[in-house]
Design a binder for these strands. Structure first.
Lengths: 337, 337
DNA sequence: ATCGAAATCGCAATCGTTTGCGGTAAACAT
DNA sequence: ATGTTTACCGCAAACGATTGCGATTTCGAT
């Protein structure tokens, strides 16, 4: 039961020297003779000595770990972001503590507290849909722990943001939809207090305007999940007011829309064109495959981690929060005429 | 730059009392007067005091965190496992450090070292495909840190295992395939040193035998990824030796097979029936949708975490490693006649 | 007036590691 | 013989919190 994990003291005792000497020997300090170093290093290897990172953290007030809070790992996009974060953190000798908020504000908050208790050196967060209060993030900032928001950011919290250019991307794919002959459009949207919700909707409206198409509020329908999309499109069909083009705020929502359309024997893309946003791996598997935007989650994760590590290194002194945009790509497939 | 994170000493200084008193007051120790407690708690709240988990870990030689090593979070299955793990850990006040091996032994090993350095109280691991040496896991056991393997386990490392009943599930779905009239079968298999690879293949063979079908080694083809499946099926088609049923070791492999079949205008399921394993969210989106096995990753994650926490609590004294089987479900869709 | 027992609280060690500073011994110079 | 340098190493404090034990005060009891 008692654990026999070997410490610096064990090595010191065995060799009849002091712990400080062992410590210095292990890190090749010039004060220590070569024989002592040799003895220490050999014994350390034999005993399988592994430094206790916890003691180091306490000593240095630095944990060499960063916290990540994301809505849900089950989304392909977020897991690619995680990979990007991990690769950068790993290179720099940091480890990553990942938490899921499950889109719940309460969980996001308690995750934040847990991460603070563990004294992460920095925080990467993608906001839950519910989140409208940011005290838990300001708390980090008040304690000089840098915070970087990615993907799901908000203007109400002042911190570095790494986001995709939602507006431009939305504008682009909606324009594409229009130019391919889809004119009577509907947008399945996310909550507008999230910047992704707002900017994608804005891109949608402006693309309509640019092409001289009229706009009515009824063309924006709040629905950002698979099931919700099914319901929303179902309602549209029932009402007889069927659009000939749908811009969904994300791929899963687009797939939901497609499912409802197929059920009513509406042809995609002939009767209705559908485009999504944020190319997961699903988009290429459907029939027809989905024209969408590649969000490049991996690049976003890398960039966010780089910025955070930079803030950790250089401090948040002359703090001047930046907004970094990640490039997107229009991926043309079969769901548009 | 200097962080102003408030400690117990700050409270003590402010109140003119000792750190020990503050500590005791905060945890309602009977030795402390109600007035002192009140003063301490109020000040702690005002100062936003949060206990330093690192100091606690060091003091108690217990970090209240568990490590998880998985091949890749991008797989739907693994992210559901993570959710299960997190839910249980969260309830018990543990936090979770997730690492990806990216199917690399070297990365798995260095992740393990990192987790040990951070003195996790337990380890949950799903082996990388490459892994055939288990020293990094034995190291944990030698230091009395419990290890539980899930999904990807090996007989060569003695620890608790939480796996699905691969054999039974494979036997079942292959039997289903045969009984629906597919007789000339091929199995796209995973490496045989992984138990999932071995048992799914075994289930395949035994199902053939049970139904009086002949078996030849050429019916088992090593291919366990989307791209590899495309290549493998492509080769089969080129050789003219086209099967009328394919049992893929996982869903993505099945989808790869389907893609190759479709490319050659072979009808699914009329010309070739296809079944997968481990229902991701993809399986229901394809056309035709894929008949497969639901692996129930969430349940697996919960179970694995429960077992680990139990081992942590009760120690690994009279160590008697168990093998726990998670129930699976045959999900009938459209890819079989 | 003296004693004993509560009631409160502080001292100091501890967890594992680092690090400034001081100490010792040998070797060299004067 | 005395002073100075060099090489090597240990002491002790520190990081933040906990905890056994002892110390002090107060108060009622005798």
């Amino acid at each position: 039961m008692r654990s026999n994990q070997v410490t610096i003291k064990d090595i010191a005792r065995e060799l009849g020297i002091s712990a400080s000497t062992v410590s210095r020997a292990l890190k090749d300090h010039p004060d220590i003779s070569v024989e002592t170093k040799k003895a220490v290093n050999e014994l350390a290897k034999n005993l399988n000595y592994q430094p206790n990172a916890i003691a180091l953290s306490l000593k240095h007030s630095k944990s060499f770990s960063i916290g990540v809070i994301i809505p849900e790992t089950v989304h392909y996009f977020f897991s690619t972001v995680i990979s990007g974060i991990e690769d950068i953190a790993y290179e720099a000798g940091y480890n990553v503590i990942i938490c899921q908020s499950n889109e719940l504000y309460s969980r996001e908050k308690s995750n934040a507290h847990m991460l603070y208790s563990n004294r992460v050196d920095g925080l990467l967060v993608s906001l839950a849909k519910e989140t409208t209060d940011f005290g838990h993030l300001r708390f980090f900032q008040d304690n000089n722990i840098p915070v970087v928001c990615f993907d799901r950011a908000s203007e109400e919290i002042l911190c570095d943001q790494v986001i995709i250019d939602d507006y431009t991307a939305a504008h682009r794919i909606v324009s594409y939809l229009i130019e391919r002959g889809h004119q009577k459009l509907v947008h399945l949207a996310a909550p507008q207090h999230l910047s992704i919700g707002y900017y994608r909707q804005k891109g949608f409206r402006d693309a309509l305007e640019k092409h001289g198409l009229p706009f009515d509020e009824s063309q924006v329908i709040m629905a950002d999940q698979f099931e919700k999309a099914i319901d929303a499109v179902e309602k549209l069909i029932q009402s007889g007011n069927i659009p000939d083009g749908i811009f969904a705020v994300n791929d899963l929502t687009a797939l939901g829309a497609m499912k409802a359309l197929k059920k009513h024997k509406l042809s995609i893309p002939n009767d209705v064109g559908v485009v999504g946003f944020g190319d997961g791996q699903n988009a290429q598997l459907t029939d027809p495959s989905l024209t969408t935007i590649d969000q490049n989650g991996y690049a976003m994760g890398k960039r966010a981690a780089e910025i955070l590590l930079d803030r950790i290194k250089n401090g948040t002194a002359n703090f001047d929060p930046q907004k970094y945009l990640i490039d997107t790509r229009l991926i043309v497939r079969e769901s548009v005429r």
